[in-house]
Lab assay of single mutants.
Amino acid sequence: KWTITVQGEEAIKWAIKVAEARNLDYTVHIDGDQAHITIE
């Protein structure tokens, strides 16, 4: 299990796209213009 933090709307969209493309189980916690994405 690991967490990445991305900043900015484009980076958030990209990170989610990558997680979905790899069929990963993930949760997103949005904090202002940052998102913390935890991959199970």
Rank of each mutant, 00 (worst) to 15 (best):
D33K: 07
N23G: 15
K1I: 09
W2G: 02
A19R: 00
K1M: 09
G8N: 03
I16R: 02
D31H: 10
I37C: 02
E40K: 12
G32F: 05
D31C: 11
E9N: 07
W14K: 08
G32C: 07
V6A: 04
I30V: 11
T5Y: 10
Y26Q: 00
I12Q: 02
I39M: 08
E40N: 14
E10T: 10
I4C: 08
A11W: 12
H29V: 15
D25S: 14
T5M: 08
I37K: 00
A21Q: 12
A19E: 03
D31M: 11
T27L: 05
A11V: 04
L24R: 05
A19G: 02
E20S: 05
A21S: 12
A11T: 05
E40Y: 15
W2P: 01
K17G: 12
V28R: 00
D33E: 11
L24T: 03
V28W: 06
D25L: 14
I30N: 04
H29G: 03
Q34E: 08
G8L: 05
T3Q: 07
A11L: 10
I37P: 00
E40Q: 13
K13T: 06
L24F: 09
E10G: 07
E9T: 11
T5P: 01
H36M: 12
D25G: 10
T27F: 09
W14Q: 09
H29N: 08
T5V: 12
G8E: 02
V18E: 14
I4E: 01
A21T: 11
H29R: 14
D31N: 09
E10Y: 07
T5S: 08
K17L: 13
E10N: 10
A11S: 06
A19T: 05
E40M: 14
H36W: 14
A35Q: 03
I16F: 03
E9Q: 11
E9I: 13
Q7H: 12
T5L: 08
N23T: 03
T5F: 09
H36D: 04
V28P: 00
A19D: 02
E10M: 11
K1V: 11
K1F: 10
A21M: 13
A35M: 08
A19S: 04
A15S: 03
E20W: 04
A15F: 14
I12A: 02
L24W: 15
E9A: 13
I37D: 00
I37W: 01
V28Q: 01
W2I: 07
Y26P: 00
I16H: 01
G32E: 03
I4H: 03
A35K: 03
E20H: 05
H29I: 15
R22D: 12
R22G: 14
I4Y: 10
I4T: 02
A11N: 12
V18P: 00
A11M: 11
A35V: 11
E40P: 05
K13R: 14
G32S: 04
Q34V: 15
Y26S: 01
A15Y: 13
D31K: 08
K17W: 12
I30T: 05
K13G: 06
A21N: 13
W2K: 03
E20I: 12
H36L: 12
V6Y: 03
I4G: 01
K13V: 07
Q7T: 14
T38K: 04
A19L: 15
I39V: 07
W14P: 00
T27N: 06
T38V: 13
Q7V: 14
